[in-house]
Amino acid sequence: MNNDSSAKIKELTKKAELFGLHKNNQLPESNAKILDSADRAKRLLSTEELNILCERSHSDASKLEELQNILPRLIDEAKDVLLRRFPEIIEPGGSLYPEERAEACWRDCFHFARISIYGTAAGNTDITDKEGVKAVQELYSILEVPVNALMICLKELQVKCREIYFESTQQKDLELLDGCFNHLVATMESMQ
């Protein structure tokens, strides 16, 4: 990789921001601050933050906390599905080889789920930042990120997250969560 490519990647990395809900001027400022703080730290929401956000959206904070608690396992399950379908993807010559590329993919899955949880807690499925998505798309193109593999993981992760709501009365929450994931899938499809 030459210096020009390195500089471009650094520039795009600064601009590459998928999450944009905290910029929504219809959210109370206190909620926007919670979302912005959590997103900047790339972390899940605390119990208190979930309760504050869900108070306004009427989403079930305890169900979202349960989802957050098992998120690593759900990501591993989604990863396993992808690797069973396409084991060669992590072999030499595969699009998730070497291991660092695969680890970046799994991290992206975590971040997709994380911001879907943010959207569900805030009661809004329009969770992306249009300008940030353009930078992500350009960055993915330069780095030759296997968007198709990422989408398979994302869709499988959505299925796994939905299972938390199986036999639950929180239909509205499930629709919100699905809406957030569907929004991300549509965003990823536009990158192909």
Rank of each mutant, 00 (worst) to 15 (best):
L184H: 06
K15C: 01
E100A: 07
I52C: 05
L44R: 03
E156H: 07
T187S: 04
A7I: 15
I117E: 05
F112K: 07
R101Q: 06
E11V: 09
Y97P: 06
N182V: 13
K8E: 13
L12I: 12
L71T: 06
P146S: 13
E99S: 13
V136N: 03
L27T: 02
Q68E: 03
V133Q: 08
E91H: 12
E138Q: 12
E55G: 14
W106Y: 10
D129A: 07
V81W: 01
P146E: 10
P72K: 12
E99F: 11
G119E: 15
A121V: 09
S30P: 02
K14R: 12
Q170K: 03
G132P: 04
S46D: 06
T120G: 06
L18Y: 14
F19K: 09
S30I: 12
F86L: 15
I52M: 06
L50T: 03
E131W: 05
Q158F: 00
A186S: 08
E138N: 02
I34Q: 08
H183S: 13
V145W: 03
F110H: 15
A149F: 09
A186M: 02
A149R: 12
Q192E: 05
T169M: 05
H183A: 13
D126N: 12
G179A: 11
E55C: 05
L150A: 10
Y118F: 15
R85A: 14
V159Q: 00
S95T: 07
D178R: 10
D129I: 07
S116H: 01
Q170F: 06
A121N: 06
E144A: 15
W106C: 03
V159A: 01
I34A: 08
Q158W: 00
E66P: 00
D178K: 03
A41M: 08
R85Y: 08
Q192K: 09
W106M: 05
E91S: 11
E163N: 05
H22A: 03
L67F: 01
S46Q: 03
S46N: 02
L157H: 00
E11I: 11
L150P: 05
D36S: 10
I9W: 04
S6A: 12
C161V: 04
E11M: 14
G94I: 12
Y118D: 15
C109E: 04
T47S: 11
R114V: 04
A122Q: 05
E65D: 10
S116F: 00
A38G: 02
G93W: 08
Y97R: 05
L18T: 10
I117K: 02
K172W: 05
P72Y: 14
I34K: 05
L154N: 12
E144G: 10
K172N: 11
